[in-house]
Design a protein around this nucleic acid. Sequence first.
DNA 1: CGAATTTTGTACCTACAGTTCAAGAAAAAG
DNA 2: CTTTTTCTTGAACTGTAGGTACAAAATTCG
Lengths: 192, 192
Amino acid sequence: MGRPKQFDPDVAVEQAMEVFWRKGYSATTPQDLVDALGIGKGSLYHAFGSKHRLFQAALERYRDSQVVDVVAMLEKPGPAKDRLRRVLTCLAEMDLADPDRRGCLAVNTAAELSKSDESAVGLVRRMFDQTEEAFRAVIEEGQRAGEIGPERDARAIGSLLLNTVVGLRLLARVADGPERLSRVIDAVIDSL
Amino acid sequence: MGRPKQFDPDVAVEQAMEVFWRKGYSATTPQDLVDALGIGKGSLYHAFGSKHRLFQAALERYRDSQVVDVVAMLEKPGPAKDRLRRVLTCLAEMDLADPDRRGCLAVNTAAELSKSDESAVGLVRRMFDQTEEAFRAVIEEGQRAGEIGPERDARAIGSLLLNTVVGLRLLARVADGPERLSRVIDAVIDSL
DNA sequence: CGAATTTTGTACCTACAGTTCAAGAAAAAG
DNA sequence: CTTTTTCTTGAACTGTAGGTACAAAATTCG
């Protein structure tokens, strides 16, 4: 009962996510959000409570769209190394093609956050865990397929790949060309 | 001539650097700076013009102290792989031991910056270039010493190592323990 | 010493961040 | 059709961000 919402909260969170992604948490103002979501300030605070709570929702949204997408890309069929290379290349290309150079929201948040924001730290940490785990799964498949040496520590390579993608997405924000990122991808894939 | 400054501008920039490093650019307020530098707002703005100009000075200071330190560590004598491992391990340990988990100011800035802040982008980019170049030099030494295969592309490995250290310092900000970082270091050193 | 120059401390200013509130509008329940 | 509930609009409010202005203080120069 009661008056129905004039906007879709899911859409609103998604739009908020875009703003936080583009500008960062601190630099995003209530006015930015009002403009992006197309609703009044009152509705905004009525629906989401505070800037910080909306940010949390946006982070969760990011996990459920972007991170899940990456994991899904990793789980596609095909040779393990090919999948890995394709995912890394795809991310690097997307990041460089983005005129705003937003990079990855989880990475940006990890860099901007103060340690005291336990809720956001937890979310980011879990996104990283999830990604590492997906990498590890691909490595293990590659090992079962005989493509990657069975003596290698799949978990360690998962960590390496997570670290690589985090680095790539950060470097992409300030890169002046694709060369360095390509070298990184080639080097890391060659090392497998 | 004129009244002499009551504070050392170099010291002030260093203290400002610490604040920006700990809180990030956006989250740092004039009051934070006044408190940290121990001078009045008037003197602050008279001496440095604006928050943004002071930030640039702080970034340059960071390059001249921290980045130069890392490069110096890399240039110490000894086997290339040992040097590389020691530098990576040292950075990871420092980052984890820091109660504020500040990570690296260049990395944090790359993540927080909007692309439109051309001055800061340039500074960060050059710090990255400098670091990559130092890594490459170590690799080439290792190749001359027969420690690393001469067929490997030293520049690509330099990029890989830069990317690795960037990733490590970002992951360190949210890591809940040293394990993942250790795995990354082991994996990347083993790949050389 | 007086003039010129630079720094300092304090007050002040405008704009906006981040949020709250009050009054009304739109629905469902009875 | 009233009551209840929820949402919306818009104004209002407190605090501070970021910076400016000004007069007093400390120095050098002539």
